[in-house]
Design a protein around this nucleic acid. Structure first.
Lengths: 117, 117
DNA sequence: CTCATCTACAACCATTCGGTTGTATGTTAG
DNA sequence: CTAACATACAACCGAATGGTTGTAGATGAG
């Protein structure tokens, strides 16, 4: 099942990871086929270490995982993570439509805000 | 139709706006019912100006719009924006599943990366 | 073994972010 | 008109981001 908590912080990480076009592109490339970090790095106009950091952000968000393969580190996407993103989005959209205001609280657990309503 | 460009930058803004729990909460509250900025501010443990900035981020992303109502400024959610987010996510997910690798390029237009594949 | 390759990670830097306070401007109530 | 309220916005600050270079450790090829 890998329900995987889905805390506010993890949702922060998920959306933050998706908020950069280079990282979204890394996701697309790795979805097509697993790639090593240095192979990925060849595709962008930045240093190897720079790409390494982007991969680390995607990793923290749980969107990709790395797997040793010889001296390379293969990056591959984690389908479950995408499900989590969609789940949050759907929850948000339900409230959007004005329905299931209660579900909102159950699914996402109101963040820090003290409800001064 | 409001196809609305959907440039890489606008996608950046969308996901960035969603990467903060306070902003997601603002979205939920405004989805339930339009609220003035100061009314929103009452709900969070931060200054009025702080909330103002969060609303500005949501506005830049096109997720909300403000409408003058007397001396207040009512914030209300923009359903179209949510559609755009879902659209990007679906595109990403298609590649995820290994299908329609071509669609990826058409829909999102590869970012800056020079394709050194 | 030796060397080239791939990775990890620290240190640094400019910019952005998330927050603050303070000031100015509009708008409505009395 | 005046006072109170709602907003706007600039200036500032510490922390995080997105990038860099440099160094060091594994691993595979020859």
């Amino acid at each position: 099942m890998v329900v995987d908590e889905l805390t506010e912080e993890s949702v922060d990480h998920l959306f933050h990871a998706l908020s950069d076009s280079t990282r979204r592109d890394i996701l697309r490339r790795c979805a097509e086929e697993d790639r090593s970090v240095s192979r990925l790095a060849d595709a962008y106009p930045m240093s190897f270490a720079g790409v390494q950091k982007h991969v680390a952000v995607l990793e923290r968000a749980g969107l990709v995982t790395k797997e040793r393969r010889g001296r390379e580190q293969l990056v591959h996407t984690e389908p479950d993570a995408m499900d989590r993103v969609r789940q949050v989005l759907e929850e948000l959209e339900r409230t959007w439509r004005g329905r299931a205001e209660r579900m909102s609280d159950l699914l996402a657990g109101r963040p820090r805000p003290r409800n001064t309503d």
